[in-house]
Protein backbone atom coordinates (compact mmCIF):
# COMPACT_ATOMS: atom_id res chain seq x y z
CA UNK A 1 0.00 0.00 0.00
CA UNK A 2 1.17 3.49 -0.77
CA UNK A 3 3.88 2.21 -3.09
CA UNK A 4 2.00 3.44 -6.17
CA UNK A 5 0.96 7.05 -6.82
CA UNK A 6 -1.45 5.75 -9.39
CA UNK A 7 -4.93 4.79 -8.32
CA UNK A 8 -5.24 2.37 -11.25
CA UNK A 9 -2.41 0.93 -13.31
CA UNK A 10 -2.63 -1.75 -15.95
CA UNK A 11 0.45 -3.16 -17.66
CA UNK A 12 0.14 -5.20 -20.85
CA UNK A 13 -3.18 -6.60 -19.73
CA UNK A 14 -4.88 -9.26 -21.83
CA UNK A 15 -8.13 -10.98 -20.97
CA UNK A 16 -9.24 -14.00 -22.94
CA UNK A 17 -12.43 -15.75 -21.89
CA UNK A 18 -12.79 -19.53 -21.97
CA UNK A 19 -15.00 -19.09 -25.04
CA UNK A 20 -11.89 -17.84 -26.88
CA UNK A 21 -13.06 -14.21 -27.03
CA UNK A 22 -10.30 -11.64 -26.49
CA UNK A 23 -12.08 -9.11 -24.28
CA UNK A 24 -9.00 -6.94 -23.61
CA UNK A 25 -5.90 -6.80 -25.79
CA UNK A 26 -2.61 -5.39 -24.51
CA UNK A 27 -4.15 -2.66 -22.37
CA UNK A 28 -1.79 -0.16 -20.74
CA UNK A 29 -3.49 2.35 -18.53
CA UNK A 30 -2.66 4.73 -15.71
CA UNK A 31 -5.19 6.73 -13.71
CA UNK A 32 -3.79 9.01 -11.04
CA UNK A 33 -5.17 9.71 -7.61
CA UNK A 34 -7.84 12.45 -7.72
CA UNK A 35 -8.66 12.16 -11.44
CA UNK A 36 -12.11 12.01 -13.01
CA UNK A 37 -12.04 9.67 -15.98
CA UNK A 38 -14.68 8.66 -18.46
CA UNK A 39 -14.26 5.18 -19.94
CA UNK A 40 -16.27 5.09 -23.13
CA UNK A 41 -16.92 2.64 -25.90
CA UNK A 42 -19.66 0.78 -27.70
CA UNK A 43 -21.21 -2.43 -26.41
CA UNK A 44 -18.65 -5.24 -26.45
CA UNK A 45 -15.71 -2.81 -26.47
CA UNK A 46 -14.34 -4.26 -23.20
CA UNK A 47 -15.68 -1.74 -20.65
CA UNK A 48 -17.42 -4.38 -18.52
CA UNK A 49 -14.34 -6.60 -18.56
CA UNK A 50 -12.29 -3.61 -17.43
CA UNK A 51 -14.69 -3.07 -14.56
CA UNK A 52 -14.57 -6.76 -13.61
CA UNK A 53 -10.79 -6.52 -13.57
CA UNK A 54 -10.80 -3.42 -11.38
CA UNK A 55 -13.16 -5.13 -8.90
CA UNK A 56 -11.06 -8.30 -8.93
CA UNK A 57 -14.05 -10.28 -10.18
CA UNK A 58 -11.69 -11.75 -12.78
CA UNK A 59 -7.92 -11.86 -13.16
CA UNK A 60 -6.09 -11.03 -16.41
CA UNK A 61 -4.91 -13.84 -18.67
CA UNK A 62 -1.61 -11.96 -18.75
CA UNK A 63 -0.28 -8.63 -17.54
CA UNK A 64 -0.61 -6.90 -14.19
CA UNK A 65 -3.40 -4.87 -12.59
CA UNK A 66 -2.88 -2.53 -9.64
CA UNK A 67 -5.83 -0.74 -8.03
CA UNK A 68 -5.59 1.46 -4.93
CA UNK A 69 -2.18 -0.06 -4.17
CA UNK A 70 -3.32 -3.68 -4.42
CA UNK A 71 -1.75 -6.04 -6.94
CA UNK A 72 -5.00 -7.67 -8.04
CA UNK A 73 -3.30 -10.49 -9.94
CA UNK A 74 -1.95 -11.85 -6.67
CA UNK A 75 -4.89 -11.10 -4.39
CA UNK A 76 -6.50 -14.11 -2.72
CA UNK A 77 -9.11 -15.05 -0.11
CA UNK A 78 -10.24 -12.46 2.40
CA UNK A 79 -7.76 -9.92 1.00
CA UNK A 80 -10.15 -9.58 -1.95
CA UNK A 81 -12.89 -8.58 0.52
CA UNK A 82 -10.52 -6.09 2.16
CA UNK A 83 -9.61 -4.64 -1.24
CA UNK A 84 -13.26 -4.28 -2.24
CA UNK A 85 -13.97 -2.41 0.98
CA UNK A 86 -11.29 0.10 -0.01
CA UNK A 87 -13.10 1.09 -3.20
CA UNK A 88 -16.66 2.14 -3.99
CA UNK A 89 -18.60 0.62 -6.87
CA UNK A 90 -21.90 1.75 -8.36
CA UNK A 91 -23.48 -0.83 -10.64
CA UNK A 92 -25.61 -0.09 -13.67
CA UNK A 93 -28.48 -2.14 -12.25
CA UNK A 94 -27.90 -0.59 -8.77
CA UNK A 95 -27.64 -3.96 -6.97
CA UNK A 96 -29.40 -2.82 -3.85
CA UNK A 97 -30.99 -5.23 -1.42
CA UNK A 98 -34.63 -4.64 -2.14
CA UNK A 99 -35.94 -5.77 1.25
CA UNK A 100 -33.67 -3.36 3.11
CA UNK A 101 -34.47 0.26 3.80
CA UNK A 102 -32.31 3.02 2.31
CA UNK A 103 -30.57 3.36 5.68
CA UNK A 104 -29.90 -0.41 5.90
CA UNK A 105 -28.53 -0.56 2.36
CA UNK A 106 -25.92 2.02 3.30
CA UNK A 107 -25.24 0.91 6.87
CA UNK A 108 -24.57 -2.73 6.04
CA UNK A 109 -21.38 -1.88 4.16
CA UNK A 110 -20.16 -0.14 7.31
CA UNK A 111 -21.07 -3.28 9.28
CA UNK A 112 -19.02 -5.25 6.75
CA UNK A 113 -16.12 -2.86 7.46
CA UNK A 114 -16.67 -3.59 11.18
CA UNK A 115 -17.37 0.03 12.08
CA UNK A 116 -18.82 0.92 15.47
CA UNK A 117 -22.54 1.58 15.94
CA UNK A 118 -21.79 5.20 16.88
CA UNK A 119 -19.81 5.79 13.66
CA UNK A 120 -22.54 4.15 11.58
CA UNK A 121 -25.20 6.38 13.14
CA UNK A 122 -23.13 9.44 12.20
CA UNK A 123 -21.85 8.33 8.78
CA UNK A 124 -25.07 7.05 7.18
CA UNK A 125 -27.05 10.32 7.56
CA UNK A 126 -23.97 12.18 6.30
CA UNK A 127 -23.70 10.25 3.02
CA UNK A 128 -27.47 10.20 2.56
CA UNK A 129 -27.37 13.96 2.90
CA UNK A 130 -24.67 14.12 0.19
CA UNK A 131 -27.01 12.40 -2.27
CA UNK A 132 -30.03 14.30 -0.91
CA UNK A 133 -31.84 11.23 0.32
CA UNK A 134 -31.88 11.85 4.08
CA UNK A 135 -35.65 12.17 4.07
CA UNK A 136 -36.01 8.72 2.52
CA UNK A 137 -33.82 6.87 5.00
CA UNK A 138 -36.65 4.68 6.24
CA UNK A 139 -38.12 3.92 2.81
CA UNK A 140 -37.80 0.46 1.34
CA UNK A 141 -35.51 0.46 -1.68
CA UNK A 142 -38.15 -1.08 -3.94
CA UNK A 143 -40.42 1.92 -3.25
CA UNK A 144 -37.91 4.36 -4.80
CA UNK A 145 -37.62 5.65 -8.36
CA UNK A 146 -34.70 4.62 -10.60
CA UNK A 147 -32.88 7.92 -9.97
CA UNK A 148 -33.32 7.60 -6.23
CA UNK A 149 -32.09 4.01 -6.27
CA UNK A 150 -29.05 5.19 -8.22
CA UNK A 151 -28.32 7.74 -5.52
CA UNK A 152 -28.70 5.10 -2.79
CA UNK A 153 -26.13 3.03 -4.69
CA UNK A 154 -23.79 6.05 -4.75
CA UNK A 155 -24.35 6.66 -1.03
CA UNK A 156 -23.53 3.00 -0.36
CA UNK A 157 -20.37 3.27 -2.46
CA UNK A 158 -19.29 6.38 -0.55
CA UNK A 159 -20.08 5.01 2.90
CA UNK A 160 -16.59 3.66 3.52
CA UNK A 161 -15.00 6.90 2.28
CA UNK A 162 -13.23 5.14 -0.61
CA UNK A 163 -10.26 6.56 -2.47
CA UNK A 164 -11.70 5.27 -5.75
CA UNK A 165 -15.27 5.30 -7.01
CA UNK A 166 -16.08 3.14 -10.05
CA UNK A 167 -19.43 3.93 -11.60
CA UNK A 168 -20.82 1.65 -14.30
CA UNK A 169 -23.30 3.16 -16.76
CA UNK A 170 -24.95 5.28 -14.05
CA UNK A 171 -27.21 7.14 -16.46
CA UNK A 172 -28.50 4.10 -18.31
CA UNK A 173 -31.80 4.14 -16.46
CA UNK A 174 -32.17 7.91 -16.08
CA UNK A 175 -33.74 10.68 -18.14
CA UNK A 176 -31.41 13.43 -19.48
CA UNK A 177 -32.11 15.90 -16.63
CA UNK A 178 -31.39 13.29 -13.91
CA UNK A 179 -28.35 12.11 -15.88
CA UNK A 180 -26.86 15.60 -15.80
CA UNK A 181 -27.62 15.94 -12.10
CA UNK A 182 -26.00 12.61 -11.38
CA UNK A 183 -22.78 13.33 -13.24
CA UNK A 184 -22.75 16.73 -11.54
CA UNK A 185 -22.90 14.94 -8.22
CA UNK A 186 -20.03 12.63 -9.23
CA UNK A 187 -17.97 15.68 -10.25
CA UNK A 188 -18.68 17.18 -6.83
CA UNK A 189 -17.54 13.97 -5.14
CA UNK A 190 -14.38 14.08 -7.27
CA UNK A 191 -13.71 17.66 -6.21
CA UNK A 192 -13.67 16.40 -2.60
CA UNK A 193 -10.66 14.20 -3.49
CA UNK A 194 -12.16 10.89 -4.57
CA UNK A 195 -10.89 9.41 -7.83
CA UNK A 196 -13.90 8.71 -10.05
CA UNK A 197 -13.99 6.34 -13.01
CA UNK A 198 -17.25 6.51 -14.88
CA UNK A 199 -17.97 3.85 -17.48
CA UNK A 200 -20.50 4.96 -20.05
CA UNK A 201 -21.47 4.74 -23.70
CA UNK A 202 -23.23 8.13 -23.72
CA UNK A 203 -20.84 10.26 -25.74
CA UNK A 204 -23.06 13.36 -25.53
CA UNK A 205 -22.85 13.38 -21.76
CA UNK A 206 -19.07 13.00 -21.92
CA UNK A 207 -18.81 15.83 -24.45
CA UNK A 208 -20.93 18.01 -22.21
CA UNK A 209 -18.83 17.54 -19.07
CA UNK A 210 -15.45 17.02 -20.71
CA UNK A 211 -12.31 15.80 -18.91
CA UNK A 212 -10.13 12.79 -19.49
CA UNK A 213 -11.70 10.28 -21.82
CA UNK A 214 -10.41 6.80 -22.51
CA UNK A 215 -12.08 5.15 -25.46
CA UNK A 216 -12.19 1.39 -25.90
CA UNK A 217 -12.84 -0.46 -29.09
CA UNK A 218 -12.59 -4.21 -29.58
CA UNK A 219 -10.75 -4.60 -26.30
CA UNK A 220 -8.08 -2.00 -26.95
CA UNK A 221 -7.64 1.67 -26.03
CA UNK A 222 -8.15 3.70 -29.19
CA UNK A 223 -7.60 7.10 -27.62
CA UNK A 224 -6.89 8.60 -24.23
CA UNK A 225 -7.09 12.39 -24.07
CA UNK A 226 -8.52 15.35 -22.20
CA UNK A 227 -11.27 17.41 -23.83
CA UNK A 228 -12.94 20.60 -22.70
CA UNK A 229 -16.58 20.30 -21.69
CA UNK A 230 -19.44 22.54 -22.80
CA UNK A 231 -20.56 22.89 -19.17
CA UNK A 232 -17.47 24.99 -18.53
CA UNK A 233 -18.71 27.52 -21.09
CA UNK A 234 -22.07 27.92 -19.35
Amino acid sequence: MGEYKEMVEMKNVNVRYSSGVDALVDVNLRINDGEFVFIVGENGAGKSTLMKLMMREIVPSSGRVFVNGYNLSRLKGNKIAKFRRSIGVVFQEFRLIQDYTVYENVSFVLRIADQSGKYIRQRVPYVLNLVELNTKAKSRTRELSGGEQQRVAIARALANDPGLLIVDEPTGNLDPRHSLELVGLLKEINRCGTTVIMITHEHELVQYFGGRIINFDKGSITFDRVIGGSDEDE
Partner: peptide, 16 residues
Protein backbone atom coordinates in the same frame (compact mmCIF):
# COMPACT_ATOMS: atom_id res chain seq x y z
CA UNK B 1 -28.20 -15.47 -4.17
CA UNK B 2 -28.51 -11.87 -5.39
CA UNK B 3 -28.22 -10.58 -1.82
CA UNK B 4 -25.16 -12.78 -1.29
CA UNK B 5 -23.46 -11.58 -4.49
CA UNK B 6 -24.13 -7.92 -3.56
CA UNK B 7 -22.50 -8.50 -0.20
CA UNK B 8 -19.49 -10.08 -1.89
CA UNK B 9 -19.15 -7.15 -4.31
CA UNK B 10 -19.10 -4.59 -1.51
CA UNK B 11 -16.38 -6.46 0.38
CA UNK B 12 -18.11 -8.82 2.78
CA UNK B 13 -16.03 -11.74 3.97
CA UNK B 14 -17.42 -15.26 3.66
CA UNK B 15 -17.81 -15.37 7.45
CA UNK B 16 -19.89 -12.17 7.45
Amino acid sequence: REEISIMKYVGATNGF
